[in-house]
């Protein structure tokens, strides 16, 4: 996954939800070791009682685009595809700009 063009990640999830919690945790595990120095990461974890509350994952990119991903429906592969699609556009622009 191209994480170079992400500037901000804010996630809110309950790890006890077997679908959205897993996806959100997998996404956080995909960020590189130095991610905290290149992007703002805000993780809010809910408890066991709040497992049913809808989780949210919002990303911001360098060009200002905001992307909010539906964790209930999307799996980690689909999220990767979505993020990569926009990141590739940004990479292309950067390459053309020199």
């Amino acid at each position: 996954m191209l994480t170079k063009y992400i500037t901000s990640v804010s996630a809110k999830f309950s790890p006890f939800n077997s679908r959205s919690g897993k996806t959100a945790r997998n996404f956080l595990a995909l960020l590189p070791p130095n991610a905290r120095s290149t992007m703002a990461i805000d993780v809010q974890m809910l408890g066991q009682n709040a497992a049913a509350t809808p989780a949210s994952l919002a990303l911001k990119f360098k060009d200002g685009k905001e992307m909010s991903l539906d964790l209930e429906k999307m799996k980690i592969k689909e999220i990767q595809v979505e993020v990569d699609r926009h990141s590739r556009v940004l990479r292309r622009k950067e390459e053309l700009a020199g």
Binding site: F16, L28, G47
Partner: peptide, 23 residues
């Protein structure tokens, strides 16, 4: 500090019972 930011407390298992963060 960098390590702490990347470490998330998920849950605890106390004598066979599962507790979330608040527990």
């Amino acid at each position: 500090q960098n390590g702490l930011q990347k470490l998330l407390l998920l849950a605890a298992r106390v004598e066979g019972k599962v507790f979330d963060q608040e527990g």
